[in-house]
Simulated assay, not measured.
Amino acid sequence: MKTILCFGDSITWGYNPKDATRLPPEHRWPNILSEALGPDVEVIAEGLNGRTLAVEDPLRPDRGGLAKLPFLLESHAPLDTVIIMLGTNDCAPCYKLTIGEIALACARLIMTVKQSLAGPGGTAPATLLISPPHMGELEPTIGLFYNGGQTLCTELAEAYRMVATSLGTAYLDAAPVASPDEPDGVHLGPDGQRKLALAVKDVIAPLL
């Protein structure tokens, strides 16, 4: 049995862009990935609305991924692969981050996995870094948080590609694969979730 941890934000959690509820389990990409990989692979979804790579927000506490990942690695060990898809929330103007700071936080998350003992036999799990989908036209309420961060979000792909290359990590750019649904312009509907899951399957299957 192989085990995969999907560490992400509201897209991994399954936020429904139509009505802000949670998508049914069968429409969330980690569950679709599990079905596509078959019964010999366990896929663990660790998605949290508002999760960032590292920055902490006093209005939404405990969302910094860097502080939480070590505990999750330990609690779910042994893990064969850890998938990281974060960064959309870090692009929000309220955090005032540069693309370099986001890339550095991303690299620190990957190094946390690589330096862990969370893999089989006390080794380090493999990692897959996913650059999130680009933002679309934002619904006004969503725009209160994300407006102004669209350009930064489009810069994640190249920055993440460089991080993945330098750290020897598998990489997937989700932007060409899936686009956010209307009306909110950030989250994936059922079709986008499925497209993402199948693209991840093609990248991750060789790692297993």
Rank of each mutant, 00 (worst) to 15 (best):
N31A: 07
I32S: 03
A36M: 01
A36W: 00
P39H: 05
P39G: 10
D40H: 08
D40W: 00
V41Y: 01
E42N: 13
A45Y: 01
G47V: 07
L48Q: 15
N49L: 11
R51L: 02
L53S: 12
A54Q: 13
E56Q: 13
P61A: 09
D62N: 15
G64R: 11
K68G: 00
L69W: 09
L69F: 11
P70V: 11
P70L: 10
L72M: 14
S75H: 08
A77K: 13
L79H: 08
L79T: 11
V82D: 06
I83K: 01
M85Q: 12
M85N: 07
L86P: 00
T88I: 06
T88S: 15
N89C: 03
C91L: 12
A92G: 06
K96F: 08
K96I: 00
T98C: 09
T98R: 00
A105K: 03
A107D: 01
L109H: 07
M111S: 12
V113A: 06
Q115R: 15
S116G: 08
S116M: 02
L117W: 05
G119K: 02
G122R: 09
T127H: 03
I130T: 08
I130E: 02
P133Q: 09
M135D: 07
P140A: 11
P140D: 07
T141V: 15
L144D: 12
G148W: 09
G148T: 10
G148M: 08
G149A: 11
L152R: 12
C153N: 15
T154C: 12
T154F: 10
E155D: 14
